[in-house]
Amino acid sequence: MSGPLSDIRVIETGTLLAGPFCGQLLGDHGAEVIKIEDPGRGDPMRQWGRERPYGKSLWWPVVARNKKSVTCNLRREEGQELVRRLVARADVLVENFRPGTLERWGLGFEELRALNPGLVMVRVTGYGQNGPYAPRAGFGSIGEAMGGIRHITGEPDRPPSRTGVSLGDALAGTMAAYGAVMALHARTRTGTGQIVDSALYEAVLAYMESLLPEWEVGGYRRERTGPVLPNVAPSNVYPTADGAAVLIAANQDTVFRRLAEVMDRTDLADDPKYATHTARGAHQGELDDLISAWTASHDAHTLLGALHTAGVPAGKTFTAADMLTDPHFAAREAIVRLPHPDFGEIPMQNVVPKLSATPGAVRWAGPGLGAHNDEIYGDLLGLTRAEREKLTADGVI
């Protein structure tokens, strides 16, 4: 075990994405994450993201990496007792059930901190632990809508769009992990744990920049603008002769002058319509047309080489294929490859951020269902083989 959290034990009872993503982040940085799954079915993420020809989830190995899988029926009294015994030996409990679910099972915070006063309980839900919407079911997409990101994502003449990934879940999971680490730090001073309440919609809202004061104070409502950053130009996606899409962000005055020099159009930097940030924003459309006509006459490789040499921020829109062959990704070890029993080898994103003295690591891909039952229930809790076999026969584990 390595990483800054290598002395921390986490019990993860959440399913699908937001709670498990929190567990993934903690595990990436060394925490021992014991994932509790329903016997027989496991986390639904084991079935999500199926890709031919494998017929198995290619998402599960990523979101469950570094975790130890044990099975436990939380609806059974015997299963609830196993959780209590695990929590007594843990630092963090991660859950993303609807508010009140753990309380109905006798696993609420008050009951558990009586067993372990230092317990940090991380609760990830759609709407938080209180308020009129708290009892509602909440998925990431609904949190994205309520938090504001959906309304401003997509093209202006089309309905709101998703970003292509489960952004709401990832943000809520990230905030949950952030909260867990803060609560653990506070515990070093107080000696006691606390609840971390991470709501999907609030995690999204936290990233919405100046959306609220723009509306209330400035009377401006953000809308969908596609790839354009309104009134900030040039900052857009531009075509190339070989069909690629290149982003160019040259909206600062000095950077725009460098772009104009690369285009061999230094006159643009002196033109009153484009000479200042405000002027370029006011003539954004026509400036983008000028730049598009220029980029369309060059292939992406030549274009990007000239822009980078001139110090103009620019980049190709990467696909997975680009990432897997890019020298910078390789030099930074941004992608790691792991052995896998079904796929032979599987690539996935490496741990972020990078720590110089206590780096995290991806130690193994998502495990099989109940792969660590003997280690956790036998070695950690001390259950005999006969006791484990009886719990298995009774459908508890």
Rank of each mutant, 00 (worst) to 15 (best):
64 A>C: 09
165 V>H: 06
163 T>Q: 14
83 V>G: 06
158 R>M: 13
110 E>H: 00
106 G>K: 01
74 L>V: 10
170 A>V: 15
73 N>Q: 14
144 E>R: 10
158 R>K: 12
98 R>A: 01
70 V>E: 11
137 A>C: 09
65 R>D: 02
134 A>T: 11
135 P>Q: 03
159 P>D: 08
171 L>E: 07
68 K>D: 03
158 R>Y: 00
129 Q>D: 07
127 Y>R: 06
93 L>C: 03
148 G>H: 03
90 A>C: 02
147 G>L: 04
162 R>A: 11
165 V>G: 11
107 L>Y: 10
94 V>M: 06
148 G>M: 10
125 T>G: 07
125 T>S: 15
145 A>L: 15
92 V>M: 04
110 E>D: 14
141 S>T: 13
175 M>S: 14
63 V>G: 12
163 T>H: 09
155 E>V: 01
99 P>C: 07
139 F>V: 15
169 D>T: 13
109 F>P: 07
139 F>T: 13
95 E>V: 04
130 N>S: 15
158 R>C: 13
105 W>K: 03
91 D>T: 11
97 F>N: 08
124 V>I: 15
136 R>I: 02
140 G>R: 11
93 L>S: 05
109 F>N: 08
155 E>C: 09
90 A>M: 03
123 R>G: 06
85 R>W: 03
86 L>D: 05
161 S>V: 08
106 G>R: 06
102 L>E: 05
111 E>T: 14
104 R>E: 01
177 A>G: 15
66 N>Y: 09
121 M>I: 01
172 A>D: 00
86 L>N: 09
113 R>L: 08
107 L>W: 07
116 N>S: 04
122 V>D: 05
95 E>L: 07
112 L>V: 01
103 E>Q: 12
147 G>C: 13
107 L>V: 02
101 T>F: 10
126 G>T: 12
89 R>S: 07
133 Y>G: 08
68 K>F: 12
175 M>N: 14
91 D>P: 05
175 M>D: 13
156 P>H: 12
101 T>R: 08
124 V>L: 06
76 R>S: 14
175 M>R: 12
159 P>N: 10
74 L>Y: 00
170 A>E: 13
149 I>Y: 00
169 D>C: 13
120 V>R: 05
125 T>L: 07
168 G>H: 10
173 G>Y: 05
135 P>N: 03
156 P>Y: 12
116 N>D: 05
168 G>N: 06
80 Q>W: 05
118 G>K: 00
